[in-house]
Design a protein around this nucleic acid. Structure first.
Lengths: 190, 190
DNA sequence: GATAGATGGCTAGCGCCGCTAACCACTAGC
DNA sequence: GCTAGTGGTTAGCGGCGCTAGCCATCTATC
């Protein structure tokens, strides 16, 4: 089966070439330029090759987004592990926003471009509940008598909102850290 | 000058026909179907007519978005006026989310599709700071010793995040009111 | 080692998109 | 009644996502 092994290896390598090139291109320029023609030029294969791996450009974006959720979960896990229980929420929140800011195009595809991915149902891809779980575990440290899930969702929404509004110039570009601190303060209260 | 008057009237009427048709079409189906061809069919004029009013489809979307900010400001103003000072933040927050949920496509174009609109600079179109001002005025009622702008920005981000995450199935579809209540509670603390 | 089939990749093209050039009918003013 | 100008049209350019159909090369069988 070594021949089939090699073929599978080559196939997955080509798939990774496509996703990583798409991601890099989006990060370097924008998702708008990630077209099948441009992408095929970047990977030095013709357009139909892309469709051997993904049924549509939307599917490709979804695959990239899932990679992002894996990475994000890793970042949150490390942040939580390296912090004391009472600082966990703050550490995780800062790790979350850092990741979003350092990978704007990726964050964009994770939360704005791809809308098919759902966190809730039983059919949710594993990386999504995993990322949520990290956030939730940190929130649990300070929840006291409050509903952990409600609190997690609200905190998450606030972080997401700060990132999105900040990105589009809807709130002042500076003062980002002040806002995060204020947010954590408010959520630690009571 | 009655002839020029009539011409101006007809011209602004046609412009309004375009923007309102675009908005209705987006709300009925999606912004994806608001193409120059489809839109021209809906308004029963040819494509180039659209370009007599707007330099690009992006400009048209921007015009629709600005209408949205005007309406949103109105909604917030009324909510604040009809509430007691201590309930103002909650009332405005609920009015904000209601407006977003009742006009999903419009909210989408205001905050996601159109990214050129900036709130901060001196060149910001009036409707934007106006909407922000309403939110800020409500927050001022409960700010006590906290920085009003920081607090407003964080609250706004949280509302925006709740709307966006809720819309894409990233947080549980029910429990929306619980989250808003939790948010207001946390921000009223201290 | 020749042959038949499967595999990986290509070219070409369909129907759409945003946007524009060029033209035409009609209106308004002298 | 002629001349401008205005409001509208048709036709087309380059680019888009996606697919049909073809070809070369590699694999497995005899």
């Amino acid at each position: 089966m070594t021949i089939d092994d090699r073929r599978l290896r080559e196939r997955t390598a080509q798939r990774r070439l496509i996703t990583s090139t798409a991601r890099a291109l989006a990060e370097k320029e924008s998702w708008d330029v990630v077209t099948t023609r441009r992408l095929s030029a970047e990977i030095e294969y013709s357009q139909p090759v892309i469709y051997k791996h993904f049924a549509s450009l939307e599917d490709l974006a979804e695959a990239v987004a899932l990679e992002g959720f894996d990475e994000l979960t890793d970042a949150l896990t490390h942040a939580r592990r390296d912090a004391s229980p009472e600082d966990a929420v703050g550490a995780v929140a800062r790790a979350y926003t850092s990741y979003a800011i350092e990978n704007p195009a990726l964050y964009d595809v994770m939360f704005t471009r791809v809308t098919r991915l759902s966190f809730g149902g039983d059919d949710a891809p594993p990386p999504l509940p995993a990322a949520y779980g990290e956030l939730r575990a940190a929130v649990a440290m300070i929840a006291v008598e409050r509903d952990i899930d409600i609190l997690t969702e609200v905190l998450w929404a606030a972080l997401h909102g700060l990132i999105m509004l900040g990105r589009n110039g809807r709130i002042r570009p500076d003062k980002f850290n002040e806002r995060i601190s204020r947010l954590i303060d408010q959520f630690s209260a009571r």
